[in-house]
Simulated assay, not measured.
Amino acid sequence: MKKIAWTACQLALIIAVTAGCAGKQAAPAAAPPAEEQPVQEAPAGQDAAASEGEPAGTPPQNQEAERPAGVPDKPATEETEPDKAETGSMSIKVYYTDANQAELLESTQEISYPSELQKYKLAFQALQRSGSDNQAPLWSESIEIQQIRFENGALTLNISLPDAARLGAGGEALALEALTKTMFQFPEVNTLDLLVDGEAVESLMGHVDLEHPIKRNI
């Protein structure tokens, strides 16, 4: 009996050990901890579009396109011509009239101009004041230059002309002659177009026909 009991104990022990090993094999292996991925920060100055997946180096959509090769620049105007240091000075002839508006009187003035367009503006302003009691300006100081344009030998002056600055038939003819003589002394000016408030009027003051443009007499 003791031998049978001892054998039964050994069998029970073997069964218990076998069951324990089977339980260990059935348990799933624990998953290894996920490796923490480092967070990549966007470089300083990178815009929101680039951080959302836009390729680096993509130019801004609103950036102005470069001027294609061969496209000419705009003609020179007071708006387009950059400010410069003084580029020159010269003595110019300016024309006025006598007290009776009977004839033109020639005078000389010195001008210093920061740009080519300013040269024409200063010449026109010289027509508006003589500095002499014996020389009367035909162009009133109330006349304002709205814009000056120069391109390929063509000079355009756009002025405002108040009623108080208008002259009679003789004065109008002398005023136009004084203007053309003053502006055509510059060798680069071949034509002169005079506009009033941007319009090519038939007559400057209502008495003399106004050509568009006035051409230099060779």
Rank of each mutant, 00 (worst) to 15 (best):
M1H: 08
K3T: 13
I4H: 13
W6P: 05
C9V: 14
L13F: 12
L13A: 12
I15T: 14
V17L: 09
V17P: 04
V17T: 06
V17W: 04
A19Y: 10
A19T: 04
G20D: 01
G23A: 13
A27D: 02
P28H: 08
A29W: 09
A29E: 14
A30D: 02
A31E: 09
P33Q: 06
A34R: 11
E36F: 03
V39N: 01
A42N: 09
A44N: 07
Q46P: 01
D47E: 01
A49D: 04
S51N: 13
E52Y: 07
E52R: 15
G53A: 11
E54S: 04
A56Y: 15
T58R: 08
T58G: 10
P59G: 01
Q61A: 13
Q61S: 12
Q61E: 15
Q63H: 02
A69V: 14
G70E: 11
P75H: 04
A76C: 14
A76L: 11
T80I: 02
E86K: 11
G88P: 05
V94Q: 08
T97G: 00
T97M: 00
N100S: 09
Q101P: 02
Q101E: 13
A102C: 05
L104E: 04
L104F: 10
S107I: 10
S107F: 05
S107V: 07
S107N: 14
T108W: 01
I111D: 03
I111P: 01
S112Q: 08
S112K: 12
P114K: 09
Y120G: 07
K121Q: 12
L122A: 02
A123R: 03
A126Y: 02
Q128P: 01
Q128S: 05
Q128A: 05
R129M: 06
R129P: 02
S130W: 03
S132T: 07
S132K: 06
D133A: 10
N134K: 10
P137H: 13
L138W: 09
L138M: 06
W139R: 00
W139N: 03
S140D: 14
E141V: 08
E141M: 05
S142R: 09
S142M: 12
I143L: 06
I143Q: 02
I145S: 04
I145C: 10
Q146N: 13
Q147C: 02
I148W: 10
R149W: 00
F150P: 00
N152C: 07
T156I: 05
N158L: 03
I159M: 10
S160K: 13
S160C: 01
D163T: 07
A164Y: 03
R166A: 04
A169M: 06
A169W: 04
G171A: 05
E172K: 07
A173T: 01
L174D: 02
L174S: 00
A175N: 07
E177K: 14
A178Y: 00
A178N: 00
L179C: 00
L179T: 01
T180L: 03
K181A: 02
F184V: 03
F186W: 06
P187M: 00
L192F: 05
V196C: 01
V196K: 03
D197H: 03
E199Y: 09
E202I: 02
S203Y: 02
S203N: 07
L204C: 08
L204Y: 03
G206N: 08
H207V: 06
V208G: 10
H212D: 06
I214K: 01
I214E: 09
N217D: 14
